[in-house]
Computed example of a mutant assay.
Amino acid sequence: MNLALFDLDNTLLSGDSDFEWAQFLISKGVVDREIQEAKNIEFYEHYKAGTLDIYEFLNFQLSPLTRHSRAELDAWHREYMARHIRPIIGAPARALVKQHLDNGDLCAIVTATNSFVTGPIARELGIPHLIGTIPAVDLANGAFSGAPRGTPSFQAGKIERVEAWLESLGLWWDSFDDSFFYSDSHNDLPLMRKVKTPVAVDPDDKLHQYGTEQGWKVISLR
């Protein structure tokens, strides 16, 4: 059996699910366009530079979830999937996932984006496991608190979260004949170095240079 791990944003998606969620909320008048877009640009520049403070970003990212009921958020998410996500899932990405599923590989999305946003996307792709940043909830009413719970699945945190998931299944890295991780970002280098077969997907400049030097496979899903 093989292990196949997939980054989501700008890897399986031809875009960023968190950015698209923000744009959707702007279109609904839920958040202020000027403030949201300015902060998104600022955080994205830090992300590209590898200097993102993930907790500061998550506080900003998760705060809109706290002001609305789960029923309302779920209804919005269905609209968001139709308008913003399905159009950026390309046939090559679906084919890659299907190839691994048909092979009987254990498949998971590993993403820093929160699991409220990404859970339905994983189901749309037919990927049975999701390792995403977990938004904390108020156990009394199920509402989101605006904070993350546990370790965010970002940079080296992705290794910690994947290993905890594997252990929960009674598995470990050497349980697999081969292990793959597909990603576009140099922020994912820690996990890419951990698997046997790292694959750079439409990579950023830093990942492209590093992957080329290491002889990694480079593909496009666009």
Rank of each mutant, 00 (worst) to 15 (best):
I127K: 03
I127F: 07
P128G: 06
H129F: 02
H129V: 03
L130S: 04
I131M: 02
G132F: 02
G132M: 07
G132T: 08
T133Q: 11
T133I: 01
T133C: 04
I134F: 04
A136R: 05
V137C: 10
L139G: 00
N141V: 02
N141K: 01
G142R: 15
F144W: 10
F144K: 00
G146Q: 09
G146H: 14
A147S: 12
G150W: 06
T151S: 12
P152Y: 11
S153V: 05
F154M: 10
F154C: 03
Q155S: 04
A156R: 13
V162M: 06
V162S: 08
E163M: 06
A164N: 08
W165I: 03
W165L: 07
E167Q: 12
E167N: 09
E167D: 14
E167G: 15
S168R: 11
L169R: 14
G170R: 07
L171D: 13
L171W: 04
W172V: 06
W172Y: 14
W172G: 13
W172E: 15
W173V: 05
D174C: 04
D174T: 02
D174Y: 08
S175G: 04
F176I: 08
F176K: 04
F176A: 06
F176H: 09
D178F: 01
F180E: 02
F181D: 01
D184F: 09
D184K: 00
D184R: 00
H186Q: 05
N187Q: 09
D188K: 01
L189S: 00
P190D: 12
P190R: 08
L191V: 09
M192Y: 14
M192C: 10
R193A: 07
R193L: 15
K194W: 11
T197P: 13
T197Y: 11
P198S: 11
P198K: 09
P198C: 07
